[in-house]
Computed example of a mutant assay.
Amino acid sequence: MTVLDDRALNRASLARQLLLDRADVPVVDAVAHLGGLQAQEPQEPFVGLWSRLCAFDPEVLSGLLIRRRVVRTHLMRRTVHLVTAEDALAWRARHDAMLRQRVLGNYRRELAGTDLDELAAAGRAVMADDVPRSMTELARALAVRWPAPGPRALGEMLVAALVPVAQLPPRGLWRTRAGVRNVLLSSWLGREIDALSMDGSDPVGQALVRRYLAAFGPAASADLRAWCGLAGLPAAVAAIREELVTFRDERGRVLLDLPGAPRPDPDTPAPVRFLPAFDNALLGYHDRSRIIDGAHRGLSVAGERVVLVDGRVAATWTVKDGTVMVTPLRSFSRADRTAVAEQGRELALFLSDNDSHRVRVAASSR
Rank of each mutant, 00 (worst) to 15 (best):
A215I: 04
T2K: 12
A128L: 04
P164G: 03
R52Q: 03
G48Q: 10
D5P: 03
R273S: 13
R330M: 14
T318V: 08
L138S: 15
A39H: 06
T114P: 02
Q101K: 12
T136D: 14
H95A: 10
I291L: 09
A141N: 08
T268I: 00
V326P: 11
A362S: 15
I292G: 02
E242M: 11
P151N: 05
A178N: 03
D29G: 01
A85I: 08
A97I: 11
L49K: 06
A139F: 05
H296Q: 07
L224N: 02
D353G: 15
L53E: 12
D129H: 02
R366Q: 00
P218A: 05
P149R: 01
I193N: 01
S221V: 11
R78W: 09
D249V: 05
L4T: 06
V326I: 09
R124A: 13
H286L: 15
V301W: 09
W91L: 12
W227Y: 14
C54Q: 15
T79N: 13
R22W: 00
V3W: 11
L162M: 07
A143W: 01
F332D: 05
W174N: 11
R67V: 00
G284V: 07
D117Q: 12
G229Y: 05
T73F: 06
R92M: 14
L65R: 11
D202H: 06
A178C: 01
S364Y: 14
P234E: 13
V71C: 08
V361I: 08
V3L: 07
P218T: 03
P132I: 10
L111C: 04
L282N: 04
M98H: 02
A231R: 14
D321I: 08
G172D: 03
L64S: 04
E342T: 15
L282I: 06
A341D: 10
S62K: 02
L196C: 11
W227I: 09
V159F: 03
E41L: 15
F350A: 09
E118A: 15
V47G: 04
R253Q: 12
A341G: 13
